[in-house]
């Protein structure tokens, strides 16, 4: 099945600095399995919470947000292999900047638009002014 050794040997002789890693595949598989298990668990809890009547209803959106952020973290660590190791500093810095912009865009939009909604004249009055 694996003609890898031979090709691998040839590759290693004349490969550029960017040669392919031969990942420890047992370890890699375990990471993906753990990620799959955790993500499935978090997804199942999310779908359960969305429709349950067991918890106080106003807390449901908050719980869903927390679960979603946790699941994104699981995906980042176990699927995208973003870690806190010294070899990952640049990746994490780029991610942190991305998260900052995402938060600014989403929270900023919601904040500003809710204020504008709040201060807007009710629709029926606008209609009357246009007549």
């Amino acid at each position: 099945m694996s003609h890898s050794k031979q090709i691998n040997g040839v590759d290693l002789v004349d490969s550029a600095p960017g040669d392919e890693p031969v990942e420890d595949d047992a370890h890699g598989l375990v990471a993906y399995l753990v990620g799959l298990g955790l993500a499935t668990l978090l997804t199942a809890v999310s779908f359960f919470i969305a429709r349950t009547t067991l918890v106080w209803p106003p807390s449901i959106p908050v719980a869903l947000c927390v679960l979603a952020i946790a699941q994104m973290g699981v995906h980042l660590v176990f699927f995208l292999h973003i870690t806190t190791g010294p070899d990952n500093v640049n990746n994490v810095m780029a991610l942190a900047f991305g998260v900052l912009i995402v938060l600014l865009v989403i929270v900023g939009s919601l904040w500003i638009m809710s204020h504008m909604n709040h201060n807007m004249m009710p629709m029926d009055q606008i209609m009357q002014m246009q007549r």
């Binding site: 694996s2 890898s4 691998n8 890693p21 993906y32 995906h75």
Partner: peptide, 16 residues
């Protein structure tokens, strides 16, 4: 997403 991870392990270890 999981099977994609398997595929990338397969590619890196040259297991067709």
């Amino acid at each position: 997403s999981f099977t994609c991870g398997i595929a990338s392990i397969g590619a890196m270890t040259h297991r067709s």
